[in-house]
Every structure is written in C-alpha cells, then in structure tokens.
C-alpha cells in the first residue's frame, strides 16, 4: 500500500499555551487557503507535500497537552513516524516538558523515531526566556533537529515541517527496505498480511503490542 501512496504520521506535542495548533494551521492553510477551508479542522490536519520527487500525505495528529491527559498521550504515539515537540521560547518551563516527552516517545515508538524540537513565538524577541544555545542543546541531547519558528508571522514554519517530513520519509524508506530484505529471505508462502503488519504498519513496536499502554 504504502509504496504508491506514501503517508507519514506526525504527532504534535506541546503544552496548551505554546501555540502548537496555530503552528499547524499556519502550515496547512497558508498555501491553499481557498481549497482547504472546507476541510479545515482544529485537531486533525493532513497535507500533501512533495519531498524530493515523492508525493507524501502528511497526517498531523494534534494531541491534548494538558497535564491531566498525560497518561493517555501514548495512545497517540502508535505507528508515529515523527514527532514535533513544540515549546514556547518565552516560557522556559515548556522546554522542560519536552525532555519528558522525548523519553516517553523513544520508549514507546522506538529510539529511531524522527524528532523535531520547535521553539515557537520567535517573533517575541523581547520576551524571550530560552537562549537558542540551551534549546539547541536539549534537542541535540535527544537526537532531535531544532527549529525556531513564529506561528504568527509564519517564519520558519514551512522549514520545520519540511525538514521533519524529509527525515521521516528517509526513515520509512530505510524501514521498507529492511522489510523487503526480510521478506525476500522468508519463505515465499509466509509473507502474508501478518508479515506486512509487523514490518510496515507496526513500525517501531513489538509485534505483540496491540493496545498502547496508559
């Protein structure tokens, strides 16, 4: 399935006040405003993007960032190809939360999940509380890319998503290639749906994992 129609799942994490939703709306609706208005959604968005020569459908899964929903968040991680961890450059507490999410993601999705740490509200230079060096350090420590953006002006938004999509696609290609290799080496009768499920749609998770943990 995924050969012709490539789709990527991107999970969006960030506390309520960091502006993650505005970020997505900016990204998804700035270009094809007319066309998109009808399907515009606050929580779920998808966008067709071109990565290299490929058409990719990017599904962006917004998650509720409130503390009270922390326990159920892992339900959204399942099969994620990438995660965008958004924090507020004017609020250093929101960066702290990012670290916790990364640990959780890597445990549940796999260490090779594509991560992007995004510092939002770059336009509020005067109120800035997190030095670039610090957030860059946090991102580097967890193997994530780092982008600073402004959902208000749109600065850096496209680049953050495009970069994430590019790396997530590369990861998916790697995995598909590995799956192909595995299938080729398996006996011809075996590769059934079950095999595909383990290798393709359950990427990064143990084969027995059915219900995400709480």
């Amino acid at each position: 399935m995924s050969r012709n129609r490539t789709s990527l799942k991107l999970v969006l994490l960030g506390e309520g006040r960091v502006g993650k939703t505005s970020l997505v709306l900016k990204y998804c609706h700035s270009q094809f405003a007319e066309e998109q208005r009808a399907t515009e959604q606050a929580a779920f968005n998808s966008k067709q993007v071109t990565v290299g020569e490929r058409q990719v459908e990017l599904s962006i899964w917004d998650t509720a960032g409130q503390e009270r929903f922390h326990a159920i968040q892992p339900l959204y991680y399942r099969d994620a190809d990438a995660a965008l961890l958004v924090f507020d450059l004017t609020d250093s507490d929101t960066l702290e939360r990012v670290r916790a999410w990364v640990t959780e993601l890597q445990t549940l999705v796999g260490a090779d999940v594509v991560l992007t740490v995004v510092g939002n509200k770059a336009d509020l230079a005067a109120a800035r509380a997190v030095p670039a060096a610090e957030s860059r350090g946090v991102a580097a420590a967890v193997g994530a890319a780092y982008h600073e953006v402004s959902a208000l002006t749109g600065a850096g938004v496209e680049a953050a998503f495009a970069d994430t999509a590019r790396r997530a696609l590369a990861r998916q290609q790697r995995r598909l290639a590995a799956a192909d290799a595995a299938q080729l080496s398996a006996s011809p009768g075996v590769p059934s749906w079950a095999g595909g499920r383990d290798t393709v749609s359950f990427t990064g998770q143990g084969p027995t994992r059915r219900r995400p943990c709480c």
Binding site: G16, L25, A42, A43
Partner: peptide
C-alpha cells in the same frame, strides 16, 4: 465537535486537540 471548534478557529483562539479532547 469539530464544527464547534471552528468557532474558536474563527476567533483566532484555536487550541486544537487541547479543546477537542475535553
């Protein structure tokens, strides 16, 4: 529920899933 949330989008206060899930 999404349609409800559009009201917030229109008002420029979109909080996406933060509002949707509750």
């Amino acid at each position: 529920i999404n349609n409800l949330l559009h009201a917030a989008v229109a008002a420029g206060e979109a909080r996406g899933a933060d509002d949707f899930l509750p």
